[in-house]
């Protein structure tokens, strides 16, 4: 099975190609750049490097967020249109889950997170079970402080993975103390498209038309509108 993996959901842009379970090529950039400029040239380059034609692809996998709204849409628009037009299966995987796999094998719990500004994060909690991960606490958009207080109730070590770790390291330590584990290797904080490709092998395919980003957050205008409707109802 030939798999093309795409992740443009956060600052890291990743593309990988695997064939029959083996990674053939992986490309990562970690630049504050528009992924719309870099993505297709990277796909083109890796396809050439691995002697793969679009018609040879059997599956496309894409990281569906959370992350940058625009970034997620660049990846999804590309992946779903390509999969639909080539008539091949598409698989989506949470960007948090993808990052969580970088912590596999260290300790029992893994907490990947992305900074979402104003004290908020996108995060979830995963538990290592055999060779895979299980969701312990659902992905959410939450105040990092209240999230950490929830985690402090667990009597286990938790490994934290995030490119935004330095922004929050002291807060994590102040609440979790010794229970917090941080990988020394910086590269473990970056999501890998090769892992995306590996995970895609056994996932159930989805329907291209139905693929939507996992924003984890309502559009502000919509949230305000709903609040306004509630207020009107109460009056």
């Amino acid at each position: 099975m030939n798999i093309l993996a795409i992740d443009t959901s956060n600052q890291v842009m990743g593309v990988a190609i695997s064939k029959d379970g083996q990674l053939k090529a992986e490309h990562i950039t970690n630049m504050k750049r528009n992924h719309s400029v870099g993505l297709m040239p990277a796909i083109d380059h890796l396809m050439k490097e691995t002697d793969t034609l679009p018609a040879d692809l059997d599956r496309i996998v894409v990281a569906k967020g959370p992350g940058s709204y625009t970034g997620v849409r660049i990846g999804l628009s590309t992946a779903k249109t390509m999969a639909w037009s080539l008539n091949i299966p598409i698989v989506t995987i949470s960007s948090l889950e993808l990052l969580a796999y970088n912590g596999q094998g260290a300790v029992k719990y893994i907490c990947p997170f992305f900074d979402a500004r104003r004290g908020l994060v996108y995060t979830g909690l995963y538990e290592v079970i055999g060779e895979s991960l299980a969701v312990v606490k659902e992905e959410q958009n939450i105040s990092f402080e209240s999230w950490l207080i929830q985690l402090s109730e667990l009597d286990e070590k938790i490994v934290f993975l995030s490119q935004d770790l330095e922004l929050h390291r002291s807060l994590i330590i102040s609440i979790l103390g010794e229970k917090a584990v941080f990988p020394k290797v910086n590269a473990l904080h970056y999501p890998r498209p090769s892992i995306l490709a590996a995970l895609a092998e056994e996932r159930a395919p989805e329907i291209s038309h139905e693929i939507t980003p996992n924003y984890l957050r309502m559009v502000e205008a919509e949230a305000n509108w709903l609040k306004e409707q509630e207020r009107k109802k109460d009056e």
Binding site: S36, P54, I74, S77, T78, A79, T81, M82, S85
Partner: peptide, 20 residues
């Protein structure tokens, strides 16, 4: 609108690339 344009641009690139 940049976010809106990006969806069309990337879909167009995907189609053109996939079918040469």
């Amino acid at each position: 609108l940049v976010g809106a344009l990006l969806v069309g641009v990337n879909a167009a690139k995907a189609l053109a690339f996939a079918h040469n």
